[in-house]
Structure formats: structure tokens, C-alpha cells
């Protein structure tokens, strides 16, 4: 009964001679919250960036709601889509970055409303209304006119989340979104993500916050050297790790 939102099948990627992903496959159904953990260099961020087509990949395919993104098979040959179709495919997912990447020359409200107007051709009033409601949802109803430089890191990241989700994506991608934050600002961001999870948003989350991954995820994936080394419920992964690598990894991280 559950419909598939994201299907990653056998994705391979290398930077030059340096392989990063060796055939990763993963399926997310509607409402799934999947956390990806693993040491740096394990390929988890690269995987996320492939789903958003910010990275090219050389083999395998990624589909969102049954439609392959980024590439097409033509006469038996795999080819990249043109940049317009790629932009369209990217809009299917919402991405939140480690370094926020808000547009510094635009106010918080403009950061959210500009893409609504330019990509989704909403009117100014519609975009404004959507932006305002999402700003309230992330707990910043009265900071709309503030510029990114006037906001704390946690507030900036909440605006970035609002900006991505206001576009009504099928899937949200979070790339170590609390790694650049001061410790006391982390929870306000994680709380926003948890609230989205409870609303049934489908999410793929790369994180170093183990407790958060444990609490929020329906499934946790441990990546190691470009492969999914272990996959299971949070209970299975954190309380009962099977592989030695995961046991060692969990021992080296704080929970």
C-alpha cells in the first residue's frame, strides 16, 4: 500500500580514479524518514548530492515517484538530460545544506518567496503568503524582514528549511544540517525537522547527531566505503549493531 517516493538502484560514482559509491541501492516510501550515518568519506553526502543531481553519477539510476531523474536511456545508451529537465528534476527534492546557503542579499521572506515566484510562477502575493506561513512553522513569524546576516545560525538554518519545503518537494534532503551550528542552537533546528517528520514528510537525512537519528528515523543506514554496510530500525542499528565496522563506528561517536 505504501508508494515509493525514492528509488536508488545500483548507483556508482567516482571522482577520477577514486571510487566514492560502489552500487548503492535504497528505497524510501512515502513518509519514511531515513538517516544515513557513517564516518566522513563514507560517501553519505555524495549519495545525497546525487539524489539532488548536484553530483553526476556514472552507473545506476535514481527515480522519484517512479520517474527516473537526471538521465535517460536512449537507443540503449545512457545520456544526461538537458539542463532544463535537470532543473525540473531538482525541484522534486528540497535540499538543506550544512552551510545554510541562504542568499545574503535577500531578506528571510524573500529567500523563501523568490524561488516560489521564479520557479513555480506564483504571484507575489501567493509567494508571500506561503513564505509567511512557513516562517511561522519554523518559529520565525516576526523575522521575515531580517537579512541572513542578522540571524543566528540556527535561525538561518530554519529559514533554509522553510525555503526548501515551501517549494512543496516530494522528498527532503538534509546534509549534515547541524554540523556548522553552535551546540546550543542545534536543538531548535532538529525540532523543526522532527515536526516535519511527524507531518509525514519523506526525508533522507545525513547526520552526525546519533541521538537525533535514533529518535526521528524510521530506518537508519550505515554507510562504509561507498556501500550500505548495515541497514535497520534505529533499535537494530544503535542497540544491536551486527557488523564490526558499525560497532567500531558507534563506539567512536557520542550518542
Amino acid at each position: 500500500m505504501s508508494d515509493t517516493v525514492l528509488q536508488i538502484s545500483g548507483v556508482h560514482k567516482a571522482y577520477g580514479d577514486n571510487p566514492v559509491l560502489h552500487g548503492v541501492s535504497l528505497t524510501l516510501n512515502k513518509g519514511d524518514v531515513v538517516s544515513v550515518i557513517g564516518s566522513s568519506g563514507s560517501g553519505k553526502t555524495t549519495l545525497l548530492r546525487c539524489v539532488n543531481l548536484l553530483e553526476e553519477f556514472h552507473q545506476g539510476s535514481i527515480s522519484i515517484e517512479g520517474k527516473q531523474i537526471g538521465y535517460e536511456e536512449k537507443d540503449g545508451k545512457r545520456g544526461k538530460l538537458n539542463s532544463r529537465q535537470i532543473a525540473k528534476d531538482r525541484a522534486l527534492t528540497g535540499m538543506v545544506f550544512q552551510s545554510f546557503n541562504l542568499f545574503p542579499h535577500l531578506s528571510a521572506i524573500e529567500n523563501i518567496s523568490l524561488p516560489l515566484r521564479k520557479v513555480q510562477n506564483k504571484t507575489k502575493a501567493q509567494a508571500q503568503e506561503i513564505a509567511n506561513s512557513w516562517l511561522s512553522r519554523v518559529g520565525l513569524p516576526d523575522r521575515g524582514s531580517a537579512f541572513p546576516g542578522q540571524l543566528s545560525g540556527g535561525q538561518q538554518q530554519r529559514v533554509a528549511i522553510a525555503r526548501a519545503i515551501a517549494m512543496n518537494p516530494k522528498l527532503m534532503l538534509f546534509d549534515e544540517v547541524t554540523s556548522a551550528l553552535d551546540p546550543e542552537l542545534i536543538n531548535e533546528v532538529l525540532d523543526v525537522i522532527k515536526a516535519l517528520a511527524q507531518d509525514g514528510m519523506t526525508m533522507l537525512i545525513v547526520t552526525h547527531e546519533m541521538r537525533f537519528a535514533y529518535e526521528v528515523s524510521s530506518r537508519v543506514i550505515f554507510m562504509n566505503e561507498g556501500l550500505i554496510a548495515e541497514e535497520g530500525t534505529p533499535e537494530e542499528i544503535f542497540k544491536n549493531p551486527k557488523t564490526e565496522r558499525l560497532q567500531a563506528f558507534l563506539k567512536s561517536t557520542k550518542f
Binding site: 548536484l54 546557503n101 524561488p115 520557479v119
Partner: peptide
């Protein structure tokens, strides 16, 4: 910063839009 282009791309901006608005 390259993150600006990536954020714009991720939102579905075309190159022209990224250039003009960001």
C-alpha cells in the same frame, strides 16, 4: 560562494535565473 549556486540549483533555478537573481 559556490554554495549560492548549489542552493539556487537545488531550488530548481535555471542558470539564467541563478545568474540574474543570485
Amino acid at each position: 560562494h559556490v554554495g549560492q549556486t548549489e542552493a539556487a540549483k537545488a531550488l530548481g533555478f535555471s542558470f539564467r535565473q541563478t545568474f540574474t537573481f543570485i
